[in-house]
Amino acid sequence: MVFLSGIQANQLRIYDNPMNNRAIDLFILVDETTSRLTPVQFGQIKITVKNIVTDLQPGSSTPYFGVYFYGSTSSVDTVVPFGSNSATTVSKNVDLKQYTATQLNPSSLSAALDSVNAACHTSCREKISRVTVIFTSSPDLAAEARIRQLEDNFGMTVIIVGIGSGITTSVLQKLASHPTDEYGLPFSSFTELIVSTSLISFLISNVPRVVSVGEQLSLTSTVAGAYYTVQVNTKAFIRTNDTVVTFTTNCIECLVYSSLSKTNPTNANAIATTNPQYFYAPGYTYPVYYFRIPQNTNRFYFSFLGTGMTSVTGIFNVFDMPQMMTF
């Protein structure tokens, strides 16, 4: 396993991104197809799920969980209906889940994703990071369209966890959300999966929440030295190579970082954006940062370094450069 190999154990802080406000809407999908899963391995996946939900509910956190098993019975088994906010309750329900021989016409990953779609439509919260994690030993490419639909409709980030020697990274990355090298996770065995639970929990908890162009960010306070990170949904706007995303803020001293491939850009993996333009209004000065975004970019990752300033605001906008300015 190579993902997050450069992160030390003492850096694995759950909800490290203060913009997530120690909250997440999490859907866990488990492929329980018994032709590929022994009873022992089934128990190991259950342990992994229980460890993750426990990790994601430290004090003062507000996660919502939903757990669905597919691939054995003819319909998707909703083990934990989405909206449960108790890791203890989730663990008890998962413990009760039994190993079941695969029936004729078993439910599919696509059917499980349809359950996520329906639950998120009615119960997902506003301004909360939304994540679906899929555990499987046989990734189903037929579900790709539904995954993209969840991304488009709900700002969902989909993490694919593949287990077993037959897993190929290229297939995981076909299904995973961007950046696929971060969200398509191969493990050679179920034992390795259990050992790596804390890394998966860390990754889930720090998926930046999605903000839309024109949506105002507003923070009553910031912590000096903390990175505040979001992902900007640009799919509906980036149609040419001559599109510019702007960020206007009242925080003159905040250092700004951006990336198309790093989900949490910091001074360790990105270069601070300097030389903003300034917008002046009576009694106020606002720095405006400009980012030229490649065509067909769906997500743009952005962070600023807190200074301890209170009442920080910011807003993203988009415009196309006039033809005479393009190159």
Rank of each mutant, 00 (worst) to 15 (best):
P81D: 08
G83D: 03
G83W: 02
S86Q: 04
T88N: 15
T88R: 15
K92R: 15
N93W: 03
N93A: 12
N93R: 10
D95T: 14
L96M: 14
L96N: 13
K97I: 03
Q103S: 13
A111K: 04
A111R: 03
A111V: 03
A112Y: 02
L113Y: 04
S115R: 05
N117C: 13
A118N: 15
A118T: 15
A119I: 15
C120R: 02
H121I: 13
T122Y: 11
S123L: 13
R125L: 09
I128L: 06
R130C: 03
R130F: 07
T132R: 06
T136C: 07
D140H: 03
A145W: 13
R146N: 04
I147C: 07
Q149C: 11
L150Q: 02
E151Y: 02
N153S: 10
N153L: 15
G155K: 11
T157F: 02
V158F: 02
I159Q: 00
G162P: 02
I163T: 12
G164A: 07
I167M: 05
T169D: 11
S170F: 09
S170I: 08
L175C: 04
A176S: 12
S177T: 09
P179I: 08
P179D: 07
D181T: 06
E182F: 04
Y183M: 09
G184M: 00
P186A: 12
F187S: 00
F190Q: 00
T191L: 09
T191F: 07
E192D: 15
S198H: 15
F202T: 12
R209M: 11
R209W: 11
V210I: 14
V210W: 02
S212M: 14
